[in-house]
Amino acid sequence: MTNDRFAPIGHQGRRPQGLLAPLMWLGGMIATAVALTVGAVLAVFTAAAVAFIALFAGVLVFFAGLAMRARGTVSVKAQRDGDVIEARKVGNTWVTYGWERPGR
């Protein structure tokens, strides 16, 4: 029995001996390289997806801004056009028809 208090936790320190040791070391290195490659590919796909979402969110906000600006322009124009329904020039003056003052 050892006096090391961490000895019962995890790996006990037994390493393979003989011809099996280099093969296990090589297998561990290959598994590590494959795991790093898969992680790097997934990181690239994740970054591309985030960039794609950010691009389309920016386009959506741009078109929403254009729509809001167009809506404001149309509503202001509609308010101005609603005051006079019809106007004709009679002589040197303009005569309007269908216009009523509020409160009359």
Rank of each mutant, 00 (worst) to 15 (best):
M1T: 07
T2S: 15
N3A: 14
N3C: 09
D4G: 01
R5V: 05
A7D: 12
A7Y: 15
G10H: 03
H11I: 02
H11Y: 12
H11F: 15
H11Q: 09
Q12T: 04
G13T: 07
R14W: 08
R15C: 02
Q17D: 06
Q17H: 10
Q17G: 02
Q17W: 05
G18K: 07
L19V: 12
L19D: 11
L20N: 09
L23E: 14
L23Q: 15
M24G: 01
L26W: 09
L26K: 15
L26Y: 13
G28C: 08
M29G: 04
I30M: 12
T32G: 04
T32W: 09
T32N: 11
A33M: 13
A33S: 12
A35H: 12
T37Y: 15
T37R: 08
V38E: 10
V38G: 01
V38W: 11
G39A: 12
A40T: 13
A40F: 15
L42I: 07
A43P: 01
A43E: 08
V44M: 11
A47Q: 10
A48C: 06
A48E: 11
A49H: 15
A49W: 12
V50W: 03
V50N: 05
V50L: 06
I53N: 03
L55N: 13
L55H: 14
L55Y: 13
A57Y: 07
G58C: 05
G58T: 05
G58Y: 03
V59G: 01
L60D: 10
L60Y: 10
F62G: 03
F63E: 09
A64D: 08
G65H: 05
G65L: 06
L66M: 14
L66A: 08
A67V: 08
R69H: 11
R71F: 09
G72N: 13
G72Q: 08
T73P: 00
T73S: 11
V76C: 06
A78H: 02
A78Q: 07
R80C: 01
R80D: 04
D81P: 04
D81A: 15
G82E: 15
V84L: 06
V84D: 02
E86N: 02
R88Y: 06
K89D: 01
V90E: 09
V90A: 03
G91R: 10
W94P: 00
V95E: 05
V95N: 00
T96W: 04
T96P: 00
T96Y: 11
G98N: 01
R101N: 04
P102W: 02
G103E: 05
R104G: 04
